[in-house]
Amino acid sequence: MGFTLFWIPATILAALLQTARNLTQRSLTELIGVIGATQVRFLFGLPFALLFLVLVCVASERLPPAISLTTLSVTTWGAVTQIAATALMLAAMRERSFAVTTAYTKTEPVQVAVFGALLLGDALSLWKFIAIVVATAGVVVVSWKPGEKLSRAGMRPAVLGIGAGAFFALSAIGYRGAIQMLPEGGFVMRATTILALGLALQTTILMVYMLAANRPALVSILRNWRPSIVAGLLGAAASQFWFIGFSLTTAANVRTLGLLEVPLAQIASRRIFSEGTSRRELLGMAMIVGGVGLLLMLAI
């Protein structure tokens, strides 16, 4: 009972750490490319996740819960979709500002509702439909520039960012399901176990790919190990708190509060990258946050 609302500070910490991690990964993208920066999150995050798991086991005097084949499958689903989401997000950040790309990816909660309606048969009320329209319109407002003709190149960053949001939504559903499937352990133990398993799967998948198809990027990662370690630590810590949130409440609740990342990205964009944001882009981001917030207020 005492930990019922612990998902709130955990999610706030996750949003803060993820913003810092995204900033670090964006800088690395220019040095080692999209795939390399994506692997940094997993390869250098895995040792920290394993350390977290050891500390939790020592503190609780218990071993991690057993992993069934079903749990492994669902965790793999979460891991693979998160790889795709991260790669798409970093690709979008190369073409649009940090703050605007973050806003694109934060259409994720809306897409959770759409996936639920299409795949699970969840009811979509009039107010939920209105919320989706408002959030989607916000994405259009952010991505469209006055006088800019619609073209494939102009729409590319929006498609990449929204695609990242879709895969992040699928990933959140997968990880939440995997945590719930574990047969025993407290919420911290279950969250940390799935985090370590997910990062191990992601590191292995990308390592095999890079050894086969992109060895220069792997060499670049090792050469840039100092900033990579920072990105790995921030990524593992952010995921630890996201997963703790998933272990205590629905992914919808966690991702709604996680929208704090949008104004955080705006502040970071101005202070660190000196990226200006127009009133139109601010209006669009406000519409995204408002639409997503309305949608999930109705769902809670």
Rank of each mutant, 00 (worst) to 15 (best):
E184P: 03
L160C: 09
F168A: 01
G177A: 13
V142W: 11
S151K: 07
G186S: 14
T192H: 05
V141E: 12
A158M: 15
G185T: 07
L199H: 08
S171F: 00
G177V: 00
G163L: 09
E184S: 15
M155W: 03
L197M: 11
G147N: 10
A178V: 01
L197C: 05
T192N: 12
L160V: 09
P146T: 11
G198P: 00
R152K: 13
T192D: 09
I173F: 07
G165W: 00
A172T: 01
V141A: 10
P146Q: 10
I179L: 12
G163E: 03
G154P: 01
G177Q: 14
Q180I: 06
S151Q: 12
I173Y: 02
L160Y: 11
P157Q: 07
I179H: 07
V159W: 11
G185L: 04
G154D: 08
V159A: 14
E184Y: 11
M189P: 07
A166I: 15
G174S: 05
L199V: 01
L170H: 02
R176A: 15
A166D: 05
S151G: 13
R176C: 01
V141M: 14
R156S: 08
R190Q: 10
G186H: 11
G174H: 05
R152E: 09
V188T: 14
L197W: 02
R190F: 08
M189A: 14
P157M: 11
A178F: 03
T192M: 05
L199R: 02
W144I: 08
T193W: 08
P157I: 11
S171V: 02
T193H: 07
G163T: 05
Q180C: 04
V141D: 10
I173P: 01
L160R: 06
G147C: 12
G163F: 02
A178L: 07
R152G: 10
G147F: 14
P146H: 14
G161E: 07
G198A: 15
F168M: 01
A178D: 02
I194M: 08
I194V: 15
Y175V: 06
M155K: 04
G154T: 14
R156G: 05
M181Y: 07
A196P: 04
A153Q: 14
G177F: 02
E148M: 13
A164G: 10
W144M: 13
G185Q: 08
A158W: 03
V188E: 10
G174M: 02
L201W: 02
Y175M: 14
L150I: 15
A169M: 02
F187R: 09
K145R: 15
L201E: 08
G174F: 03
G154Q: 14
A200K: 02
E184D: 14
K145T: 15
A200V: 03
S171N: 11
M189D: 12
G154Y: 08
A200G: 09
M181C: 05
A166Y: 04
G161Q: 08
F168V: 00
K149M: 13
